[in-house]
Design a binder for these strands. Structure first.
Length: 561
DNA sequence: CTACTGACTTGCCATAACCTTA
DNA sequence: TAAGGTTATGGCAAGTCAGTAG
C-alpha cells in the first residue's frame, strides 16, 4: 500500500517504468506465402521469355505491380531495386539478367491489374466471405490480455515484403523490404502466460518477459536496420493514460510558459553564443511550432527541423511587404513536407540570426552550437517533463481553446475553422484530393441553382405582395407569408452552401486529422460539444471516440485547457 | 561529449467501406 | 442499383527523446 502523494512525473522509477503485470497474446499474424504466377504469365528478358525462380519472381512482381507509379521511373528507385533484386537471384539468373531496361514486366503487370479488377467486381456474397475471414483473424490475433483486460492490438499483422518507397527524395527508395521470418521476431509476454506458438516448423528469435516495455513483438526491418514493434491500439488503457499524461504536461507548460518566454528573451543577449542560439531556437519552437529537428544520417531524405536548420533554409529581410525584420523560411520538414513561411520577428532575434549566419556557407548549420539533446536538457530544467514537442501540443491545444472561446456559434463549421487554424500552425498538409476540382464544381453548380431558385421565389413573393395589396384577403395574406418564408429559407440554404464552399476551399491542402488525433486535448472538444449540445459523433468518428474514451468519460462542459 | 540503440509518437497516403444520387 | 463521391481505416514511414557505452 502506497499513498500517492507525488505528481505523476515525479513518481519513483519503479512505478514509472513498469508498464504491465501480465500480458498474453497470440503473436503476430504472418502474411500469406508467395503464390507463383500461372505458367501463361511470363517475364521477358531482352525479348525472350524467362522462367524465374520463385524468389526472383516474387521480387519481380513487386516491381511489376508498381509500374504505373511515377517513382519507378526514378533512377535511384530503379538502381536500388535492380541491385537488391540481383542479389536474390540464382547464379544463372544473375548471369543472364544484367540490365533493367531489358526487363519486360508488362505481362506480370497486366496480370495484377486484372486480378485487382476481379476483386473489385466480386459479388456481395464473395465479399461477405472475405469479410468474415478478416473478422475471424481479428478475433484470433487482434486482441491481447493485458492485466486481465482484453485490449485491441494496433498492428497485429506483420508487414508483407515489398519494395521500400519512403517519402520525398529518399536515397533508399526501391530497395527490397524482406519477408519477416519467425526467426526474426522477438516475442514479449509474461512468464506465466500461454506463450504464442511460432508457425509450424519455425521458432522465434527470442521470447522475453520484459514488463518495462509495452510492445508484444518486435523485429528489425532490413532497410534501416531499425526495430519495429507490434503495439496496442490507441483505444487501450495503456495508450489512453499516456495520452492523458501528455496533455497534462502541456497544461503544466501553460502555467510555466510566461517565465520560460522571459528566460529565452534574456538569452537573446547572452554573452555566450550557444545560449543565444538556444534562446532563438526555443523561440522558433514556441512561436512557429517547429519540431525539435534531430540530426539525421544521409541514408534518409534530407529534411530538417529547428535544430537542424541550415543557413540556406532562411532568408533575412530587413523590410518586406511593409513589415520589418522578416525571416523567410523555406525547408522540407518531416515527411518532406515543405515549410514555407514569412515571419516578422523581434529585432533582437533578427540581429542574432544575422550573427549566426555570418561567415557561414549555405549548407552550414544555422544553430551550430546546440543539439536537440542539449535543448531538451535545458527545457527539462525549466519544467520537469518539458521537451520541444510539448510546445506543439501546448500551442495547438491553446489555439483550439482560444478559437472556440471566440466563436460562440456552436456550429461544426466553426469547429472545423478552429481545427484548421491549428493544422496551419503545425503545417499539417495533404495532397489535394484527386476529386477536389470536380467536387468543387458540383458544389458551385448547386449554389448557382440555389441562386436561381431565390430569384424565382423573389419574383413569386413580389407577385403575392401585389395580389395582397390589390385584393387583401385571408388567403392572399397566407400566400404572402408563405412566399416570404420560402425566400428566407432559400436564403439560409444558400448561405450554408456558400459557407461549405469556403470551408472546402480552405481545406484543400490542409490535413485536419493529424492535429485532431495527436495535438488537440480531446477534453476541449468534449466540453465544447457539451456546452453547445453538439453530439460528440459530429466531431469524433468511432475510432476517435474509442481513442478518446478517457476524455469523453471524465470531461464536463466547464473544462478549459 | 558523441554515437548508437531502443521505444514510443506523429504523419501522410492508399484503399476499403460506406453513403448518396441519378 | 450502379456509379460516383466521401469518409474511415489500415499501413507503414519518419519523427522525438531517453538511455547507455566508450
Amino acid at each position: 500500500f502506497r499513498v500517492q502523494t507525488l505528481p505523476l512525473w515525479e513518481e519513483g522509477k519503479s512505478s514509472d517504468t513498469q508498464k504491465w503485470s501480465s500480458l498474453e497474446h497470440k503473436g503476430p499474424y504472418f502474411p500469406p506465402e508467395y503464390e507463383p504466377l500461372p505458367d501463361n504469365i511470363c517475364f521477358n528478358y531482352d525479348g525472350q521469355p524467362v522462367k524465374l525462380s520463385p524468389v526472383t519472381e516474387e521480387i519481380a512482381t513487386f516491381y511489376a505491380k508498381m509500374l504505373d507509379h511515377e517513382y519507378t521511373s526514378k533512377e535511384v528507385f530503379q538502381n536500388n531495386f535492380f541491385c537488391d533484386w540481383r542479389e536474390e537471384m540464382t547464379k544463372e539468373e544473375r548471369k543472364l539478367i544484367k540490365t533493367l531496361s531489358k526487363c519486360d514486366f508488362s505481362q506480370i503487370h497486366k496480370y495484377f491489374v486484372e486480378k485487382s479488377e476481379e476483386r473489385k467486381n466480386m459479388t456481395k456474397e464473395e465479399k461477405q466471405v472475405l469479410k468474415e475471414e478478416a473478422s475471424r483473424l481479428m478475433e484470433e490475433y487482434g486482441y491481447c490480455l493485458l492485466d486481465g483486460h482484453r485490449e485491441k492490438i494496433g498492428n497485429f499483422k506483420l508487414e508483407p515484403p515489398g519494395l521500400f518507397r519512403g517519402r520525398g527524395e529518399h536515397p533508399k527508395m526501391g530497395k527490397l523490404k524482406k519477408r519477416i521470418q519467425p526467426e526474426d521476431v522477438t516475442i514479449n509476454c509474461s512468464q506465466d502466460s500461454k506463450i504464442p506458438a511460432p508457425p509450424a516448423g519455425h521458432r522465434w528469435k527470442r521470447v522475453q518477459h520484459d514488463n518495462t516495455v509495452t510492445w508484444l513483438a518486435s523485429w528489425l526491418e532490413n532497410i534501416h536496420g531499425r526495430p519495429k514493434y507490434i503495439m496496442l491500439n490507441p483505444s487501450s488503457k495503456l495508450k489512453g493514460e499516456k495520452d492523458w499524461q501528455k496533455y497534462e504536461t502541456a497544461r503544466r507548460l501553460k502555467m510555466k510558459v510566461d517565465s520560460i518566454r522571459k528566460q529565452y528573451r534574456r538569452d537573446w543577449t547572452s554573452r555566450e553564443m550557444k545560449i543565444r542560439q538556444r534562446g532563438v531556437a526555443i523561440y522558433f519552437i514556441d512561436k512557429l511550432a517547429l519540431r525539435a529537428g534531430n540530426e539525421k544520417d544521409d541514408e534518409s531524405a534530407d529534411t530538417v527541423g529547428c535544430c537542424s536548420l541550415r543557413v540556406e533554409h532562411i532568408t533575412l529581410h530587413r523590410r518586406l511587404d511593409a513589415q520589418e525584420h522578416v525571416v523567410e523560411f523555406d525547408f522540407l520538414g518531416k515527411d518532406s513536407i515543405r515549410y514555407y513561411n514569412k515571419v516578422p520577428v523581434e529585432k533582437q532575434v533578427f540581429k542574432n540570426l544575422k550573427l549566426f549566419i555570418k561567415h557561414k556557407d549555405p549548407e552550414d548549420d544555422l544553430f551550430d552550437r546546440i543539439t536537440t539533446v542539449k535543448l531538451n536538457k535545458t527545457l527539462n530544467e525549466s519544467m520537469p517533463g518539458l521537451t520541444a514537442k510539448v510546445f506543439r501540443t501546448f500551442n495547438a491545444s491553446t489555439t483550439l481553446q482560444d478559437q472556440l472561446n471566440k466563436l460562440t456559434t456552436g456550429k461544426i463549421l466553426s469547429y472545423n475553422r478552429a481545427n484548421r487554424a491549428v493544422a496551419i500552425l503545425c503545417n499539417h498538409q495533404r495532397a489535394a484530393p484527386k476529386t477536389f476540382e470536380r467536387s468543387m464544381q458540383l458544389l458551385q453548380e448547386k449554389i448557382q441553382k440555389k441562386k436561381e431558385q431565390i430569384e424565382e421565389a423573389k419574383k413569386e413573393l413580389k407577385e403575392a405582395k401585389k395580389a395582397h395589396k390589390d385584393a387583401p384577403s385571408d388567403k392572399s395574406k397566407k400566400l404572402l407569408e408563405k412566399k416570404e418564408k420560402a425566400v428566407q429559407r432559400l436564403g439560409e440554404q444558400l448561405k450554408k452552401l456558400q459557407l461549405q464552399e469556403t470551408d472546402r476551399e480552405e481545406n484543400k491542402v490542409i490535413a485536419l486529422g493529424t492535429s485532431k488525433l495527436n495535438y488537440l486535448d480531446p477534453r476541449i472538444s468534449v466540453a465544447w460539444c457539451k456546452k453547445h449540445q453538439v453530439p460528440i459523433e459530429k466531431i469524433y468518428n468511432k475510432t476517435q471516440r474509442d481513442k478518446f474514451a478517457w476524455a469523453i468519460d471524465m470531461t464536463d462542459e466547464n473544462f478549459q485547457f
